[in-house]
Nucleic acid binder design. Structure first.
Length: 221
DNA sequence: ACCCAGGTGGCCC
DNA sequence: GGGCCACATGGG
């Protein structure tokens, strides 16, 4: 069972996910921040509010009053910190890149990732989501599901972000579309497995479950 | 009435 | 380096 085989199984089970759901590159970034530790449904509501108020542009977010911003993104939860985080990003964008994503994205992948990580409120996963889904550069996105699933499958031992990311990038072809789809599929599977019971690997994939069950002796669902 | 969601940063040791 | 904690709304 290697990473490409797992990928094929997930694709068979769930089909193409076609992430990231957004109208443009800027919306991807806003969505990446708003969905932190929140369901996509809730992040979507916040995005809809921003859209209705024509706030999904760097200039508009740069100018808007933070209290107003907080009100608009409330449904996404953690709305005060997230309002600050959105401001941190656009402030950074205007201070260093003239407010233009195009300029920021002209950096090399490594430099872009480093720059994003220097912004308060943008950690590993959000940075990689932006690099991959907004800038379209091949940086594999790791999330809590990725670590949970691949640990249970016995494919990874190290649980640190960088280690897991390296494992995927070293064992997969360096391909943007593959990275995009793989992460989306992992999230889809992640929603189907139990968080608290390490032995529970319920999922809609017969062969997958067979493998998981033999590895974990799972009888759930 | 719980539990969880496509995390992050700040503190403490 | 790792282990807690706050942050907060909405859905199951």
């Amino acid at each position: 069972m290697n990473l490409l085989e797992v990928y094929e199984k997930l694709l068979d089970a769930f089909g193409e996910q076609n992430w990231w759901p957004a109208d443009d590159e800027f919306e991807v970034i806003v969505g990446a921040i708003l969905t932190q530790q929140a369901s996509w449904k809730n992040a979507e509501k916040a995005i809809k509010n921003l859209k209705q108020h024509r706030m999904l542009r760097s200039e508009a977010l740069h100018k808007v009053d933070i209290k107003k911003l907080e009100e608009l993104i409330k449904p996404s939860g953690f709305y005060r910190v997230k309002a600050k985080r959105l401001k941190s990003f656009v402030d950074f964008l205007f201070e260093k890149y003239d407010g233009k994503l195009e300029k920021l994205f002209s950096l090399s992948m490594k430099d872009l990732r480093r720059e994003l990580l220097s912004i308060n409120g943008i950690g590993n996963e959000t940075a990689d989501s932006i690099v991959l889904y907004s800038a379209g550069k091949p940086s594999f996105v790791v999330d809590a599901y990725t670590i949970r699933i691949f640990s249970r499958l016995g494919l990874i031992k190290e649980k640190k972000y960088e280690k897991v990311k390296d494992f995927f990038e070293k064992n997969l072809p360096r391909n943007v579309d593959l990275y995009k789809e793989y992460h989306a599929l992992i999230v889809e599977l992640g929603k189907n497995i139990c968080k608290v019971k390490p032995k529970c690997f319920s999922c809609p994939l017969n062969k997958w479950c067979e493998y998981a069950n033999s590895a974990n002796n799972c009888a759930e669902k």
